[in-house]
Nucleic acid binder design. Structure first.
Lengths: 256, 256
DNA sequence: CTGTACGCAGTACAATGTACAGCGTACAGA
DNA sequence: TCTGTACGCTGTACATTGTACTGCGTACAG
């Protein structure tokens, strides 16, 4: 499926919510029983504990002791709620100060911070960021991460390119982890069990002569990690590749 | 959201479907009006034209001139249908013969084949592959792509690692494109229009002094590509990085 | 004191995957 | 040739989702 969050609402209103624009004038009527932050916090708690699929308007409302429709007086819709959740999560990310450290450590720190984000909030990997939440959290994150890439001799455009490349990689890893978790959740099998169940069945229908390389390499990879797909290894291996790639780009620039 | 497809059904049955296991004995009752292939083909046609969200059991059934529940006599459920769609798409991928070419061209060819897959079938990017469809299409694809990585001095495990890294990257790019398409579809705005709408609003709430690097780099990146996010550029830039990374790994191995 | 704006609640609807039960067909065995 | 049964297909039904709409009561502005 395409990812979640396709806010079709009014951009101005969404931005006002993200930046917590003050209420325009004195409020009439009964006092508000909740706050945007409370709604976002409740939704985030549910998502952290049970995954994004558990975040339904009814569920969030129940958690807050109100009826579902009440939420719509705080948030225009579910898409905007996801925007707010994501920007709040960005805002809460610890931002390591790596000034003075060698660039590989600085880039690694950026990756680790994002990895930690997705470990604390696995659902965040599943939220589309092609139209990012343009809130203070996102801005501050972007500012912080770009700072880590300054002084390497990269152009501004290359800095953005490299950051995008790095974050795309980390998010892709997180998506895989989240998918595995979701599959585990509603198939009652974890990845290893699933493979152990399928391997012998596959061996029966698979002609080893037809796929010699696949069988050989697949066996080697399966033996090397405990399972056929080891997320930690994919991340560790991939991060080294990304660092090597940046090194090549930086060297090229330095010699030019 | 987590991605689609969490087949909770019987693995043995799913494998039998993927490999088109013959019906065990002589059939009784009325003759079948359709075939698995027809169902898979119809679903794929809908997904290609209107996205994965348009693929509902009711819609597929209507396209085939049957009632929704009829599909369940061909396929155990929607998850398995997605498995079959994906494996069929894998099977149909053109497999370029790159024997004898330099390794960069061979790796590039693998990337391009996958990019083409996602261009022809954008929905494929949104289907989770942490538990891949273990069918003939997937197997043949894996065999083909591994062959392209042989003879580089990489170990079997490294071949698998590199392939995973490459495919993860290409799929991540495709996911972004698919997300943008989906957002365009149900917000009536394409990415460029969305940015043009948000940029001036953002400028009003954004303190330029608080995010100097972000504003500077963001402006440069936005000016360099026509939009703030250019999928083609992200792919082209990223592929070069992946190739550089592989080069570093291969060189290291060669010198070891 | 009163009118009105606004927070909150309840009902309602369309869309989804699919469980379940019934109906009719066409082959297996007589 | 006749009949029982396995099986393809249909129709109805249900739980779950986001959210539009309507009504009620509150608390501040005048």
């Amino acid at each position: 499926m395409p990812k979640e969050r396709t806010s079709s609402g009014d951009p101005a209103h969404t931005l006002q919510l993200l930046w917590r624009g003050s209420s325009p004038d004195r409020r009439r009527g009964p006092r508000r029983g909740l706050s945007i932050d409370a709604v976002v916090e409740a939704a985030t708690a549910i998502a952290d504990a049970e995954g994004l699929a558990a975040v339904t308007m009814r569920r969030v409302a129940k958690e807050l002791g109100v009826v579902p429709m009440t939420l719509y007086t705080y948030v225009p819709g579910k898409a905007e709620l996801l925007d707010l959740m994501l920007d709040a999560a960005y805002a809460r990310m610890p931002r390591t100060d790596t000034t003075g450290q060698p660039w590989r450590q600085r880039v690694t720190a950026i990756a680790e911070e994002n990895k930690a984000l997705f470990e604390r909030h696995p659902w965040a990997a599943a939220v589309s960021t092609v139209r990012p939440p343009l809130g203070p959290g996102q801005m501050s994150k972007y500012e912080h991460e770009l700072s880590g890439l300054e002084g390497l001799g990269l152009s501004d455009v290359e800095m953005d390119d490299c950051l995008t490349h790095l974050l795309t990689f980390v998010q892709a890893c997180a998506v895989a982890v989240a998918d595995a978790r979701a599959a585990h959740h509603d198939s009652a099998l974890n990845d290893q069990q699933w493979w152990e169940l399928n391997a012998p069945l596959l061996a029966r229908v698979l002609d080893e002569n037809a796929y010699p390389t696949a069988v050989r390499v697949g066996a080697a990879a399966g033996a090397a990690h405990s399972s056929a797909y080891d997320p930690d290894h994919v991340y560790a291996f991939g991060l080294q590749r990304v660092l090597d790639a940046f090194a090549a780009l930086i060297d090229r620039r330095g010699n030019a």
